[in-house]
Amino acid sequence: MSRDVEGPVGVHPSVSILYAQVWSGKPRMSIDDKGFLTSEEEKISAGKIYLGDVAESAIRSLGPHGTPEVTEESYDEQKWKLVCRSNELKIKISSESYWGFGLFAKCFLNKIILDGPLSSRARCIHEIVATLGRNPWEPIRVRAFERKTKASISAHAQSWESLISFAKDEFLEIVEEQRAKIRKLRGLGEENEYLIDNAEIYLDEALMALSDKNIPAVERALSRASNSIIQFDPSTEVYSANRELLEN
């Protein structure tokens, strides 16, 4: 897909382009002499920007990532462009006003371009929405937002919601796959049956975390469930190693 496309684009093989309403301009960040973001407390600063609640949530939702780099700034500290990378994702965020001459934080929107595997993009977007605690595609000024982005609110909603649904469906599929494994393994080793019971508990915890939109907790619970299944499964090397330890 051409990077000239304005979007919005949700589920796509390689890129997602989303627009979000900014509610808060904070935190205020400094830019070092190489163009990278630093905390505002840094004494040496080549400039400052108001990062805003959406961009802050987006960067955190990447997981482990490099230092965000500001690629464009202006006299208006809330008008800027930046890029940030994690192991799997590259995110570009731009901030610009769309109504009210940019006098207030809520006069601004963020354009988010995510490159990387669809699964990772979907989970990132799911986490952004959960962290914000609101629907970022719902603007303060609907018509002005639509004019600026050249897209309807329904198109914006679809782009975000399609990724959120993709992430949810993917997690539900993983849970069902794990439950299917558990059903096959039941009765193969009564002395270690507690491992399968634990896996069931972890899967329930994953579903509860998913309903709370807590992606990190979902991933932790699924990882624990998978580890319990691997330890119980007689066909795995982990099971064989544990068996040898018990017998020696």
Score class of each variant (00 low, 15 high):
residue 160 W to C: 03
residue 159 S to Q: 00
residue 107 C to S: 07
residue 248 N to F: 15
residue 230 I to D: 06
residue 120 S to E: 05
residue 115 D to K: 08
residue 26 K to D: 10
residue 188 L to Y: 10
residue 152 S to L: 13
residue 70 V to H: 11
residue 140 I to G: 13
residue 102 G to L: 04
residue 65 H to C: 01
residue 242 N to F: 13
residue 216 P to H: 01
residue 19 Y to T: 10
residue 226 S to M: 05
residue 168 K to D: 06
residue 200 E to V: 11
residue 63 G to M: 01
residue 35 G to M: 09
residue 194 Y to K: 06
residue 223 S to T: 13
residue 12 H to C: 11
residue 239 Y to V: 10
residue 121 R to C: 03
residue 96 E to P: 07
residue 4 D to Q: 06
residue 87 N to G: 04
residue 37 L to G: 06
residue 3 R to T: 11
residue 109 L to E: 01
residue 81 K to H: 07
residue 118 L to C: 05
residue 31 I to F: 03
residue 175 V to P: 03
residue 61 S to K: 09
residue 138 E to M: 09
residue 52 G to T: 05
residue 7 G to A: 03
residue 227 N to L: 15
residue 232 F to C: 01
residue 181 K to W: 07
residue 178 Q to A: 14
residue 65 H to L: 00
residue 215 I to L: 11
residue 147 R to M: 13
residue 100 G to E: 12
residue 77 E to K: 09
residue 74 S to G: 00
residue 239 Y to W: 11
residue 239 Y to Q: 05
residue 186 R to E: 12
residue 152 S to A: 09
residue 50 Y to I: 01
residue 122 A to W: 08
residue 224 R to E: 11
residue 217 A to S: 14
residue 95 S to T: 02
residue 58 A to L: 06
residue 223 S to M: 09
residue 209 A to P: 00
residue 11 V to S: 06
residue 110 N to E: 12
residue 123 R to L: 07
